[in-house]
Simulated scan of single mutants.
Amino acid sequence: MQQDSARRSNRDRTEATRAELIAAARRLFTQKSYAETSTPEIVTAAGVTRGALYHHFADKQALFAAVVEQEAAAVAGEIDRASPPSLGARDALLAGSDAYLAAMRVPGRTRLLLLDGPAVLGRAEMDAIDNRHGNRSLREGLVAAMRARSMTKLPAEALTALLAAAFDRAALAIEAGAPAEEYRAVLTALIDGLSRA
């Protein structure tokens, strides 16, 4: 019984240290950027040793990848909550697009996911992360709409990639001060343009 408790306690400490490192790194990466953040700053902000950092992550880039993965999962969670299967295909796509734009307004997200992410991790790794999270949600919505015959049948991967790029561009523009309602109107028109008459 004590062994199980000790194992649980060690696992809890390990998970807590990992979470502290990710949270501290996120704060610094969004305040300063990936390039301007040093590993000594991260361990100081997390209140852990440098050895603890390298126990959990091979290097700063691996820690950054964990931050990006967590942020991408959070965005996908918002999309999934906003577009349950009970909604019709079009309504689910529109609700998901609204949820994406709202989720991307969290301070630092556009920098992490749309600017530093591709620059630091490379396009292939960012695509893999996107495909596990936000693009997965979008692809599922598009496939559901095509199966329901409420949307023109097109290659799902290409359609997902192009619509995701439009959503990302909208998020960047809105963060820079563009009117969100204008971008929402265009995204709605894109989705409706794919719908069968």
Rank of each mutant, 00 (worst) to 15 (best):
R90D: 11
G108Q: 00
G117A: 11
A119T: 12
R109H: 05
G96T: 08
R109K: 08
A119V: 12
A66L: 02
A119F: 07
A99S: 09
S83F: 13
A72F: 06
V68H: 02
A102T: 13
L113D: 02
A102I: 11
L94R: 11
L113R: 03
I79W: 14
D80P: 15
G77T: 10
P84K: 11
Y100L: 05
A72S: 11
A74Y: 09
L93I: 10
G96K: 09
R111P: 01
L114V: 03
G122E: 12
G77Q: 12
R123S: 14
R109I: 03
A74T: 09
G122D: 11
A76M: 13
V75K: 02
D91L: 03
R81K: 14
E71N: 08
A92L: 05
A76W: 10
V67C: 03
S86P: 12
S86L: 14
V106M: 06
L93W: 09
R105V: 05
L115N: 09
S83C: 14
V106H: 03
A76L: 10
I79Q: 14
M104R: 03
V120T: 07
A92H: 08
Y100V: 03
L93F: 08
A92S: 09
P118C: 07
Y100H: 10
Y100E: 04
R123Q: 15
Y100P: 05
A102G: 10
L113A: 00
L94H: 08
V68C: 00
V106R: 06
P118L: 04
T110L: 00
R123T: 15
R105D: 06
E69H: 10
R81T: 14
E69F: 06
D98R: 13
L101F: 06
L113C: 01
S97I: 13
P84A: 10
P84N: 11
V120L: 02
R123A: 15
G88N: 05
G96M: 08
P84L: 10
R105H: 07
L112H: 00
G117C: 06
D80R: 15
E78H: 13
L115I: 12
G117E: 05
A73P: 10
D80C: 15
P85A: 15
A72C: 10
R105N: 06
A72N: 09
P118Y: 02
G122W: 13
R111F: 03
